[in-house]
Write a protein that binds this DNA or RNA. Sequence first.
DNA 1: TGCGTATATTGCTACTTTCGAATATACTGG
DNA 2: CCAGTATATTCGAAAGTAGCAATATACGCA
Lengths: 111, 111
Amino acid sequence: MSDSLRQFKAEVFQALAHPTRIAIVELLRDGPLPAGKLIERLGIEQANASQHLSVLRSKQIVLNRKEGNQVFYSLRDPILTEVLDVMRRYFQAHIAGTLATLGEMEREESR
Amino acid sequence: MSDSLRQFKAEVFQALAHPTRIAIVELLRDGPLPAGKLIERLGIEQANASQHLSVLRSKQIVLNRKEGNQVFYSLRDPILTEVLDVMRRYFQAHIAGTLATLGEMEREESR
DNA sequence: TGCGTATATTGCTACTTTCGAATATACTGG
DNA sequence: CCAGTATATTCGAAAGTAGCAATATACGCA
């Protein structure tokens, strides 16, 4: 595979490599949401959320469309949720060992 | 989903967020390889490869086993290749935009 | 036009990542 | 034990990333 394609893959992973941005993608699973709604659900600073949305936009993981006063965000391609689904299986298969190793995460994530 | 689980996901994505590390995972698709073989195929500095392997090890994406003089690396879970496969479909679906973006990047860089 | 709401950008600082060079560790054969 | 090969770690500089506070931009409405 070409270097530049691998570079591009790496950039997509990098874009997903932050808890807040993963949360955003998960929130968009079921359809578009305005930025304000995302900020409310994320419970973080507006500027911070906007920066993370900017990262996802720049890698074209999300699309945005203006609607009056608001900006609606949506997943560019639902295939990305498949990535997260496969990852979920990975995490489920290995979370026990990971918890033991990282030692720090508690017991709340049983779903 | 819990914050710490999302944190964990983010760390795995982060571990994959480098072209060299993606190349390593792809090289390990078909079975274990000794570090030396990986270095040879990657065509990079030994120290650099070792650092990337260290990242993959620390996130338990690869496993290593000593065999005499050498260290064999393998994918901890082949499910990861599924992630890359889904990603491949994602890239194929958007290849036109991707190549356009890459072209722009190259043009930028050559200025 | 001017105000209020929604979102984006900028400036700054702290922290992390990457790389090559140098060095260290581990194992093997003689 | 010693030399040689294989791999890992450490160091320092450059580049990139994250978060906050402040500020800017865009829109709708009176």
